[in-house]
């Protein structure tokens, strides 16, 4: 199934901004992080379709997953 992955801030370095990936049914957010070589403690926020998700979230066809490191501002 096709999903979209969006990376932000330092996670873009040596990776990409946005990419489509064909992944197996049942793929979780944690699986995606592992494939991208992103350590979970580095992750600050995860969004699917604009909602916060946890790493055990099972992705479905057409999902857009946004991955942010710990950042803030104000």
């Amino acid at each position: 199934m096709l999903i979209t992955i969006k990376l932000f801030a330092t996670f873009r370095q040596d990776r990409f901004r946005v990419a489509e990936r064909d992944v197996a049914e049942g793929t979780t957010v944690a699986d995606v992080l592992r494939a991208l070589d992103i350590d979970e403690p580095e992750v600050g926020m995860l969004f699917v379709r604009g909602r916060h998700v946890e790493t055990d979230r099972v992705l479905v066809e057409g999902d857009a997953l946004a991955i942010f490191p710990l950042v803030g501002g104000g």
Partner: peptide, 17 residues
Amino acid sequence: GLKKYGTAVLVNVINEA
């Protein structure tokens, strides 16, 4: 985070949310 991207790092965060 703030040192590298400043507060403007929030544009993409808040847009995504």
